[in-house]
């Protein structure tokens, strides 16, 4: 049972508003008194997921759920999917556009960083269908 669920639409290529969803998630959780170290890990993972939706996906949604034990972040998009997940999970692998690189992204650090920051991490992807990432953060 989740006490709180928030879903944000994240659109392909919308760099100007990149970070709005994650900032909103961070502020909400802060108001709820979530410990600052946990909060930072959630914010970083959320921001990486949000950036990936903008940079790599055709569009998707970022969802944050909170229950007494956990915070759960789910990133779900409608494509293009990832052909080789093992490769995408390696530090340094990136297919980011020049536009993303100029802004300071595209080092191939995001997915491994999400996995490191979360207590639980699962990624599923199908080319042509989409990618879903679920991350869990323990509250106690």
């Amino acid at each position: 049972m989740s006490l709180l669920t928030n879903t944000y639409d994240v659109h392909k290529g919308e760099f100007e508003t990149a970070g709005d969803a994650s900032a909103s998630i961070k502020r909400k959780l802060k108001q709820l008194g979530v410990d600052s170290a946990v909060l930072r890990r959630v914010a970083v993972a959320s921001y990486e997921a949000e950036l990936n939706l903008i940079i790599h996906s055709l569009g998707g949604q970022l969802t944050m759920e909170m229950n007494p034990e956990h915070i759960v972040l789910i990133s779900k998009d409608v494509g293009p999917g990832i052909a080789d997940i093992d490769k995408a999970m390696q530090e340094g692998f990136s297919t980011a556009s020049e536009e993303a690189r100029v802004l300071g992204f595209g080092a191939g650090m995001g997915l491994p960083n999400m996995r490191r920051n979360a207590d639980g991490f699962a990624i599923e992807s199908q080319p042509g269908i989409g990618t879903t990432i679920q991350m869990e953060f323990r509250l106690k």
Binding site: G19, S22, S36, R40
Partner: peptide
């Protein structure tokens, strides 16, 4: 040396 608004967004996430 990067001056775009994403620097501040990144800073916000990381405190």
């Amino acid at each position: 040396g990067l001056t775009n608004v994403h620097v501040m967004r990144t800073a916000e996430m990381l405190d």
